[in-house]
Computed example of a mutant assay.
Amino acid sequence: MNTILLAASQAGANFLSIGLLVIMFVIMYFFMIKPQKKEQQQKEIMLKELEVGDTVLITAGFYGTVIDIQEDLVIVEFGNNRNCRIPMQKQAISQVEKAKDSKK
């Protein structure tokens, strides 16, 4: 009789530990994985909407203006003297500020 109760309590403990693991995975998904995917999608949309003339902030902390856009490369102009043009990957852009329309 004692062995039957012992086996039943061990089976209950196994189901409880599996349930806790499932709950921990669900919590991790909603607090870590889902926000990261959402941020990645927002960055992809931002890079798709990138246009010539937009002001960008690159990951190195420099602000510049987009001069030319190719597939994975962007040529960015830095500074006031207009002589510093650097090609870089689109992934190096962390923020985009749209160019203001001159028609208004």
Results as ranks from 00 to 15, higher is better:
22 V>D: 10
73 L>N: 08
29 Y>N: 11
91 Q>L: 04
81 N>C: 08
36 Q>G: 07
25 F>W: 12
14 N>T: 12
80 N>W: 04
64 G>I: 02
81 N>P: 03
32 M>C: 06
87 P>H: 15
16 L>H: 09
22 V>F: 15
47 L>R: 01
35 P>L: 15
16 L>E: 14
21 L>S: 11
14 N>V: 06
60 A>C: 03
90 K>V: 09
70 Q>H: 03
56 V>W: 02
61 G>S: 04
91 Q>R: 15
36 Q>H: 11
84 C>M: 13
22 V>Q: 13
21 L>N: 13
34 K>L: 13
48 K>I: 02
39 E>S: 09
40 Q>S: 06
38 K>M: 09
49 E>P: 00
41 Q>S: 08
43 K>W: 02
20 L>W: 14
11 A>E: 14
63 Y>C: 02
92 A>P: 01
56 V>R: 00
19 G>R: 09
21 L>P: 00
66 V>R: 01
87 P>R: 15
59 T>Q: 11
78 F>H: 01
76 V>K: 01
13 A>K: 10
53 G>D: 13
31 F>T: 15
46 M>R: 04
33 I>T: 13
39 E>W: 03
50 L>F: 12
81 N>I: 14
71 E>G: 02
76 V>F: 07
11 A>G: 08
18 I>S: 09
60 A>D: 06
70 Q>P: 00
30 F>P: 02
33 I>L: 11
46 M>S: 07
73 L>G: 06
47 L>G: 03
25 F>K: 07
85 R>A: 04
43 K>G: 01
56 V>K: 00
40 Q>A: 12
50 L>T: 05
33 I>R: 08
19 G>H: 07
76 V>D: 10
71 E>L: 03
25 F>H: 08
74 V>Y: 04
15 F>Q: 14
12 G>Y: 03
80 N>H: 08
94 S>C: 06
11 A>P: 03
65 T>D: 06
42 Q>A: 10
56 V>T: 05
63 Y>I: 01
34 K>G: 09
45 I>Y: 09
86 I>V: 15
55 T>M: 07
28 M>A: 15
33 I>S: 03
13 A>M: 13
47 L>C: 05
72 D>H: 06
22 V>S: 13
22 V>Y: 13
92 A>F: 13
20 L>N: 15
20 L>M: 13
13 A>D: 15
